[in-house]
Nucleic acid binder design. Structure first.
Lengths: 342, 342
DNA sequence: CATAAATGTTTACACGTATGTAGTAATTGA
DNA sequence: TCAATTACTACATACGTGTAAACATTTATG
């Protein structure tokens, strides 16, 4: 079995079955009359040779590539990892292949994508310029946006998936408030190149909206942002804890941040969750192993993946895309005081 | 800018430049004589139209697809996430696209891959059957194996990357031994469907080899395996701690396991690292946020990614693949007693 | 000056597939 | 019986590209 095989083509199948290539095509695409006899012979030949139509040639003929491109800022985190996993799973079942592209690559971005003839693009990026996205849309490439922020300026045939981030954060704020927290703080990402969240960002927006709904005045004390690394964040949290109006609840962009916050709070000698509450986002491994175990918000990666594929198949077959709405799930562990969210 | 554009082809470029299509091809592939005048006009037209050769058509002509397939057991963990990130980065720079496929998908596995005409496959999987891999090799598809275990039965044109797992674990064992641990335990993965490591697995092998080198008899007490989830692992660790010959050092397959072990050890009232040492693998986020911070072994994802691409380019251009050897890096934090590894 | 060599360009085909068009044979309808 | 329909099959072309080979032009050589 160590000889150099060669991938069989339609021609090989046709010869083995004793029919023309066209017949093979018709059998496999099931769109023309083919006699039962020949159909059987073709299928047997296909089986015997392990023939499978060449995706490349198929794509060239304009028949779709069964190829999805996933664009994200960085796949190196728990959330994206699990999303990719689910995406691959549901995509594979439907015959699709999933490819990856980092949003930070921008040389030749658009032309590269178009030259690949992928069937659709899923975008989950806060950094990808909206005009890039618009250009993809203008080239009639089906685009699915995973809404982590507002893509207000993107118009045309675009499908949007709302993952429930905003309402998830809102529930978190409400939970902390109802359990007695009155000095809530939103913890933003750490980054070398300063990048502050604004109302475009759905987490930030969720926090602000819910605070306003609760009638709480937003001040500079309501936010920790602009830290360049986790050490800086640690210090910032300590300062915030030891200030005149000490924070008693932290709502964090993700679990990694939340864990650092948690450690800082504990280091300051505060009791968690009795004196201070902390809630993260992602339900990552970190949230499960820190002590006390971190309360967090879990996203429905499987649901998102399914929704994305459903939308893609709609768009590919020409239907008008719709919006999909999913929900997050609160995972209450030990850094929040128990409280029925109802 | 909201009109439906259309992707330009070689023909469009040729017309705009006032030359034949062949000239365009020759200019872009730089393999024939073309007058300076026409070359200039072609390049200008290319620039103007944002033309890029259609990868699909190119692939169909057998000129490679600049397409790499990455096959792994599950990308939903820190290690794979970062590897993917690095892989995408170096691949993008060299014009490649990276696709994903889970090793647990096995229906039509081979034919699907072959029908995609990818240029190469990178495999990092403990579960993918070796005969599948062999089949890819037999179909003269360049394969790069990330050696997490022994693929002894795979023969032919295969490139192998040794990521330093085995020696990394060996160093860890030596470190714990030299810092005084005498009852070391290897902690295996948790899994529903029981799957025990053996000498094929490089971590397991590293542990056993080093233990034998140190002259320590391996017994059933040297291993914790067969746990179906983290709760079971927690209990198993507690039992092991409270047994007649209490363990004083745990070498774990990954950080997630190590964190659970750490929490169990602490819950049993043992001092870490004074009484018990724990070391993980991956340098994941979890290892950074648990308290005490977990000592661990970091892999060189960037180096692995570069090596993989280098090997792929070698194989694609017909050279005989070679073995690549990388090294891991010990990250000593607070769950091991400080000790100079020399 | 004639001819060979070097340089520059085009024509023609191939990769593996899908399908419009057209053709043949069998069946049906009146 | 003859036309009309149905059940099949085949030919020819196109997708966008790479490149051998034929052709054309210029330059070098004897």
């Amino acid at each position: 079995m160590t000889g150099k095989n060669t991938v069989p083509t339609r021609k090989d199948v046709a010869e083995l079955a004793g029919v023309s290539e066209t017949i093979v095509s018709y059998v496999l695409n099931a769109n023309r009359y083919v006699s039962a006899d020949k159909k059987k012979r073709v299928l047997e030949a296909v089986e015997k040779l392990h023939y499978r139509p060449n995706s490349i040639a198929r794509a060239l003929k304009g028949k779709g590539n069964s190829h999805i491109l996933f664009i994200a800022d960085n796949v190196a985190n728990d959330y994206f990892g699990r999303l990719l996993q689910e995406l691959d799973s549901v995509a594979y079942d439907r015959g699709y292949l999933v490819s990856l592209m980092s949003a930070k690559n921008n040389r030749d971005f658009i032309t590269r994508i178009l030259s690949r003839q992928v069937d659709a693009v899923i975008i989950s990026s806060a950094s990808l310029a909206e005009n890039y996205i618009q250009e993809l849309v203008d080239n009639s490439l089906p685009v699915v946006l995973l809404m982590t922020r507002d893509y207000a300026s993107v118009h045309g045939r675009v499908a949007r998936i709302y993952t429930g981030i905003e309402s998830g954060i809102m529930s978190a704020v409400r939970l902390l408030y109802e359990s007695g927290c009155r000095n809530l703080v939103h913890v933003d990402r750490v980054s070398r190149n300063l990048h502050f969240s604004n109302r475009q960002d759905l987490r930030f927006r969720g926090f602000c909206n819910q605070m306003e709904t609760l009638g709480i005045q937003l001040t500079e004390h309501s936010f920790i942002s602009g830290c360049r690394d986790y050490d800086e964040l640690f210090s910032a949290v300590c300062r915030r804890i030891q200030s005149d109006v000490p924070a008693d609840g932290f709502v964090c962009r993700n679990d990694r941040l939340a864990c650092t916050v948690l450690n800082a709070v504990l280091a300051c000698g505060k009791k968690v969750p009795d004196e201070v509450s902390v809630i993260g986002f992602d339900d990552s491994d970190s949230s499960k192993v820190v002590r006390p175990a971190l309360s967090t918000i879990a996203m429905d990666q499987k649901g998102i993946a399914s929704a994305a594929l459903e939308l893609i198949e709609m768009m590919v077959s020409g239907e008008t895309p719709v919006e999909k709405h999913l929900v997050t799930r609160m995972v209450l562990r030990e850094t929040t005081r128990q409280q029925d969210p109802e």
